[in-house]
Each structure stands twice: as structure tokens, then as C-alpha cells.
Design a protein around this nucleic acid. Sequence first.
DNA 1: ATGCATGCAAAGAGTTTGCATATGT
DNA 2: ACATATGCAAACTCTTTGCATGCAT
Lengths: 121, 121
Amino acid sequence: MQRTTSQREIIKDYLKSTKSHPTAEMVFRNTRKTLPRISLSTVYRNLKDMADDGDILEIADKTVRYDGDISHHAHFFCDKCGKVYDIYEKIHHRNHRNHRIPGKAERMEIRFYGICNSCKK
Amino acid sequence: MQRTTSQREIIKDYLKSTKSHPTAEMVFRNTRKTLPRISLSTVYRNLKDMADDGDILEIADKTVRYDGDISHHAHFFCDKCGKVYDIYEKIHHRNHRNHRIPGKAERMEIRFYGICNSCKK
DNA sequence: ATGCATGCAAAGAGTTTGCATATGT
DNA sequence: ACATATGCAAACTCTTTGCATGCAT
């Protein structure tokens, strides 16, 4: 059973109130203003729990992957086996132009996440 | 001036021949079959160089970011200041269904990369 | 009272860097 | 010959984990 702790509440309130897409370190620095004794590991643990529960979004993975294919294509990341598959589509550029973007987009990436067919068997 | 070394050639050939979106570690293990004395740092250095030159694609960043907003929206990553901006659009689900996906996609993410307007000033 | 969550420190990944040596030009 | 690239080891950054203590229920 999940308990209500001030650490958890404050981390969540912060994430729900900001548009800054903070890293764990940024969350730590911010929550420390209210809870000077909070530890980085508590921040990491709570962020992971919330992401697992679907309360927050985790964007970016920690291990970089490389692709020799520099043509425009999307990727499917399997949550189970970790494999990354290519998905080729034509739509990318159309979306690209339709977006209202806060800067000049040099490149874009579309990612899908889920369980791949071979893991589903 | 860039030199042609066997390490560089073999790393590049491997990346151009595989669809596996390998991590640096995977590239290392593979190139070591041909060059048993290659070091991990050489792999990292060459991968970075190639990515900077646009010869290969780097997918995923190493630091995880969190977003309290779990609605469907895209992100703009500024290559200069590192800020991440939200982009709200309606198109996501349409693309979602049109894609031929190697598994059941639970979620998707669209990312744009470039220099943001405030860095451009 | 019970046991989940925390803080701290240490351990683990992944990645970068300094330096002497090797090698492409 | 000269300078860039390499290998090795050490340093760094980001994240996870073990364990004793604290605190919500």
C-alpha cells in the first residue's frame, strides 16, 4: 500500500506545476527549497514510482543508441526486450510544417513504445 | 583533417549494415570481433564524430527528463540551451493508426530538435 | 505495532578525458 | 616528420541499491 509522504506530495506538486521538463537533479534542487533534508535517491525513487503508475511522463532514455540510417523514419521501442525497430512513413514532413514550433526545427523524431510482436508470443 | 583508420571504417561499416540501433557497447562488442584490441573510448569518440558530421543518427539522450503533463503532446528540444518546450497538436492519433507497427504501441512521442527562438536572438 | 519510505553512503552503469604511444598522411 | 587517432586507466555523471532509522497507517 502506498503511503502519503511530504516528499512524494511535494515532488508531484512541483511536476504538475512546471512546464520545464526537469531532470531528476532539477526536481531535487527545487524540492530541497521546501524540504532541505530530502535526498536525491528519494527523488529518483518517487519519480520512478510515479512514472510506473502513469502519473508523470518520462521523456528520453538514458542509453544513447545509434542508427546508420539517416533517412526520415520513426522508431518503435520494445518495453520488454529493448529492441528498436524502424518504421518508414511519408507523413513526417507534413506534420513538421503544421506544427507551431518555438524555434527552427532542424530534425524530428517519432517514437512508439510498447511490446513488440515477437515478445508478445 | 580527418584520417582513415581501420577502427573508424569498421565502426561505420557496421552501423551502415545493421538495423539493430546498437548502443555504444554493442558497437564495441561487434567491432572487437574484427579488431580485438579496439577500446571502448575509441568507439565512443568515433560515434560522436560521426553523429556530429551527420553520418549517423543518435537516438535518445542520456539524461531522463520528467513531465507532469501526461496529455498527448510533442516536445521541442533546444540543442543550444537544453530547454524542452511543449507543442500541442491534434494530429498524433491519426498518424498513430496509419503506421504499420511491429507491435502494439502503448504510447508515442514526437520530438523536434533545433535552436529555440530565445537562443536565436 | 507494523512495514513502507527515507536518508546516507556505496556501488553500478554509461560516458568522457588525459596522456603516452602508434599510425596515417 | 608531424599531427591526429588510439588504447588504457582514471575521472565523471547519472542512477540504483543496501541498510538502519523514521514515520504513516
